[in-house]
């Protein structure tokens, strides 16, 4: 089983205060363009697809699949070194964006591309939580 990962608190720009506050309440928010409707990632108050500044928050399903990943065996980051080996991944959210994150709560060597995952939140103790993903057994039967 993967070891507990560190929970560094994000030092975020003001535009993402609401995003991080929501993570502390167990919600993953997506910025969405009010003009063209596309979910925006990383969150910003600007749509890089149509150029609109009219954007707003909506809650993501928290479900997705592993787009790609790596099992980190050597790390130059002191806090993470304790947790080796750990998994860094891009998860493709059901809403579309591919989001950098960690895969947790499984053997690192069991992670595969396409694996269904669901979000879990790891509290930073500073009013925010890190969105990480664990295997999603409820999606296994859907043939996703």
């Amino acid at each position: 089983m993967s070891k507990p990962l560190p929970t560094p608190a994000p030092v975020s720009p003001p535009e993402t205060d609401e995003f991080w506050a929501a993570t502390a309440e167990g919600k993953l928010l997506l910025r969405r363009c009010d003009d063209c409707g596309i979910p925006i990632w990383y969150p910003r108050p600007f749509c890089p697809v149509c150029g609109s500044f009219r954007t707003s928050w909506s809650e993501a399903s928290g479900r997705g699949t592993v787009y790609t990943f790596t099992v980190v065996h050597r790390s130059g980051i002191p806090r993470y070194r304790e947790a080796l080996p750990y998994v860094v991944a891009y998860v493709e959210l059901a809403e579309g964006p591919r989001v950098m994150t960690n895969i947790v709560d499984c053997e690192p060597d069991d992670v595969v591309v396409g694996m269904p995952v669901r979000v879990v939140f790891h509290d930073t103790g500073q009013g925010s939580a890190l969105y990480r993903f664990q295997p999603d057994p409820t999606a296994a039967d859907d043939g996703i």
């Binding site: 990962l5 560190p6 560094p8 994000p10 030092v11 975020s12 720009p13 535009e15 993402t16 990383y42 969150p43 910003r44 787009y67 790609t68 990943f69 790596t70 980190v72 050597r74 790390s75 130059g76 980051i77 993470y80 947790a83 750990y86 860094v88 991944a89 891009y90 989001v99 950098m100 994150t101 960690n102 591309v113 890190l130």
Partner: peptide
């Protein structure tokens, strides 16, 4: 801090190799 760095700086990316490794996996 630019937002890209914030949203990619939390997950234990250890230098350049982590991102290139994910490209290789895909």
């Amino acid at each position: 801090a630019t937002p890209d760095m914030v949203f990619e700086g939390l997950w234990g990316m250890s230098g350049a190799v982590t991102g290139y490794a994910m490209a290789a996996t895909r």
